[in-house]
Design a protein around this nucleic acid. Structure first.
Lengths: 126, 126
DNA sequence: TGAAACCTTCACATCAATGTGAAGGCAAAT
DNA sequence: ATTTGCCTTCACATTGATGTGAAGGTTTCA
């Protein structure tokens, strides 16, 4: 699929898709005329990249962990590919994700608690 | 406490503490000589702001939800203060936090799954 | 009193992510 | 075949969060 179609299906402007490619997050094939040719799986991939970017991860970190996220080909799944350094990096990234999750969860809970408290007050005084 | 102390205790440079004030996230008192004077509670507040910023929230959104997050004085806790519009805004923000949480959780799980799979392979072939 | 270490404001620089426009080639349809 | 719309690259602008430095006042302590 071409860049315009992928853009429409993901809501991400073509300019950004080219930028993600420049950042080594996408690697579309090229047609004979030089046009980018994305596989069907690119739709989910772009959505995943967007979600991670929106969650405050930088393209550099995304580039590093992306190869290990729901990779269907599992080409990396050879034990000798998981050096201790790489394992440590992945653990560290997972921990940083967890920190963000905890932070967001706390604040989500605080918002809900506030709403619940006000509503309780309202019914109480009705 | 003065800005240098708060900076040391939070790891956030003074420049940023002044920026957060400019963005209406912090409101320190001023001493006679014009120096900023932060209360003890500012330490936790700054940590909370940092967590939210790191999680991809913008200062504008943080400014809007901050008054409702673990506010001990509960000065906002009057039912008539919670207009339907404000309630909707808070609900919407909570939902956006939830989306981020889900996205980060999925990717954290994917990393863990990858590590577990490689480790299983390793023991299997040992 | 003077030096060191803080504070103030102002201003300009940087960095990542994104917007936008120009100049030109390709493709599908009337 | 020409228009219309998409594609290409190149390049400069913007925005939000930061870094950094200048110029000057304050506090502390020797």
């Amino acid at each position: 699929m071409r860049i315009g179609v992928l853009s429409q299906r993901t809501g991400v402007p073509p300019r950004m898709l080219r930028y993600y490619e420049e950042q080594d997050l996408l690697h579309p094939e090229r047609a004979d005329n030089g046009y980018r040719d994305y596989p069907e799986s690119a739709v989910r991939l772009v959505q995943q990249i967007r979600g991670l970017l929106d969650s405050g991860l930088t393209t550099e970190i995304i580039r590093r962990i992306l190869p290990f996220l729901d990779d269907p080909s599992q080409i990396h799944l050879h034990p000798q590919c998981l050096t201790p350094e790489l394992a440590a990096l992945l653990e560290a990234e997972a921990n940083r994700l967890q920190e963000r999750i905890d932070c967001l969860s706390r604040n989500r809970d605080a918002i809900h608690a506030y709403l619940a408290a006000v509503r309780a007050l309202r019914t109480e005084t009705t």
